[in-house]
Design a protein around this nucleic acid. Sequence first.
DNA 1: GTGTTTACCGAACATTCGGTCAGTTGACAA
DNA 2: TTGTCAACTGACCGAATGTTCGGTAAACAC
Lengths: 194, 194
Amino acid sequence: MSTPSRRRGHDPESVLSIAVGVFNERGYDGTSMEDLARALGVTKSAIYYHVPGKEQLLARALDRALDGLFALAADERAATGPAIDRLEWVVRQSVRVLAERLPYVTLLLRVRGNSATEQAALERRREFDAFVSHLVKEAAAEGAIRPDLDPALVTRLLFGAVGSIAEWYRPERGASADDVADALVTMAFDGLRG
Amino acid sequence: MSTPSRRRGHDPESVLSIAVGVFNERGYDGTSMEDLARALGVTKSAIYYHVPGKEQLLARALDRALDGLFALAADERAATGPAIDRLEWVVRQSVRVLAERLPYVTLLLRVRGNSATEQAALERRREFDAFVSHLVKEAAAEGAIRPDLDPALVTRLLFGAVGSIAEWYRPERGASADDVADALVTMAFDGLRG
DNA sequence: GTGTTTACCGAACATTCGGTCAGTTGACAA
DNA sequence: TTGTCAACTGACCGAATGTTCGGTAAACAC
């Protein structure tokens, strides 16, 4: 078996997932290695047996979020068909990635650029933002977006709403990720008026 | 005059406004008193002449944001007329408060509850959230919101989009606060389709 | 000119920070 | 029984943290 008999103890993966949980509760800078050790049920030094240090934990977490977003952007369905349909697909997939990798994406959305690690993540994130921004402009050029709406504003408000989902979405209760995506697409594309 | 001849030096107000700027750049926990001192052009100890400490700076900043939001919620125009119109008015005013008190509201939106100060701010913020949530439910009950949209989801997505404005809005360039509010209301209420 | 206040500096404080390292433990193999 | 090794502990390091305090130079009040 690939996951054999080891009864107790952590590995790099379990350390990462627990650490990211604490990072999201207290903020990365507000989390000490003591906090992580307490959450893991071990002493501080045990963490260093599994991972090189605090910043590497952050880097791995941010990569996990960004890899999900870039995979979505590279999909064929983001490149063929009317831009407005591709935009809707990208919005839905962004919600899916956010839900599937919730703690990692949540962490990404809060990065401020305090270290080289954070700056590198921000750089990749700006790349994704440029991708969706281009998509909205295409949809506008194809006449699929109301001409009185600035495409740049639409991009920011639309994906601002997507990102805000990370602040309250909990997979175990309430609406499913698809429900949330449906509601967002309905509201943003067709309006909330009854 | 009320602001007389004092040539140099800071006061609690100038310390607060500069400190909040740094808090938003690096995050509250990522900001040291050394960082603040550098931004103020003084030494660390000089800060304590003007303000009691780091956490008090945070408390004052958060109150400034929350006072703006509660003032809006207490306005008569948020209490009379069709709920959908009141909701639109509250959205527009929220954008206005966010723009007018941008650094303070930005800071508020990032609070995680790490200290008693932060928890108190989160408590007041939840109170405001409950107010807008009630407003959306009223609008839905009056039949002004598409029945296929869950009011709780609409509230979170709509005000998630409002909050996301803090991440990119800069008063000196780009769209004005009213432009942004117009775009948000148009998109969310009537949809972005052309 | 003298006394007082305002605004600040420099040194030090106790504590916490991320990180290191020599040694211990306990499960398993031979 | 002995040896191996993954997983971990506990003591510790230097640096950075928020805060305090004694002192002080310049501006103002009289």
